[in-house]
């Protein structure tokens, strides 16, 4: 079983961190994984992204050409990746910022108002966690518990007090879809 996930949004939305979290959760469960960020001009153009591969077998190329899941947090990211998704793939879109879906009938499409939900929780910056919660619900890839563990391990010591807020945001996303 191999999951190829692309997370994309504009620089500052915590796309890379969200990807790292998925990677960390995979590592804690003893799976093979790779995480590859975009760097350079893409960071400026509003399509900062990372490629996360989680697998039961050793991973070949860390570069994803046809993802089976896309977590998109802004419209340019949907524009860029919507046609690369494999048939029967999943798109998870932040409906607060992306007015449309891909319109493809061969995908399952999940819309979650992640930025709005995060704002209501008092921290707009947790929208990426809300998206992950929705992703977990849709794919069942990890349990919330193993995710909690990953959040605690990934956050530095100085930022441990943010762990609970992050976990709550994940839960909010999980419950919203």
């Amino acid at each position: 079983m191999t999951n190829k996930i692309i997370l994309a949004g504009f620089g500052g939305q915590g796309i890379l961190f969200a990807g790292k979290l998925l990677a960390y959760a995979a590592m804690l469960e003893g799976k093979y994984l790779s995480w590859l960020p975009s760097y350079g001009p893409e960071m400026r153009g509003g399509t900062a992204n990372c490629h996360v591969i989680i697998s039961d077998v050793p991973i070949g190329s860390p570069i994803i050409t046809s993802p089976d899941a896309l977590i998109a947090m802004n419209a340019p990211s949907l524009d860029k990746f919507e046609n690369e998704l494999q048939p029967n793939g999943t798109e998870i879109l932040d409906s607060s910022l992306i007015p449309r879906s891909s319109g493809r009938t061969d995908l399952s499409s999940v819309r979650v108002a992640a930025t709005e939900i995060a704002e209501k929780m008092g921290k707009k910056g947790l929208a990426n966690m809300v998206m992950l919660g929705a992703f977990l619900k849709k794919t069942g890839l990890f349990s919330i518990d193993s995710f909690k563990e990953a959040i605690k391990k990934l956050l530095s010591e100085k930022k441990q007090q943010l762990a609970e807020a992050n976990i709550n945001a994940v839960r909010a996303g999980f419950d919203a879809v």
Binding site: K20, M27, L33, W35
Partner: peptide, 10 residues
Amino acid sequence: DGTLGQMMEP
């Protein structure tokens, strides 16, 4: 190369 340098693996 840039890919190996930037990517994360265990």
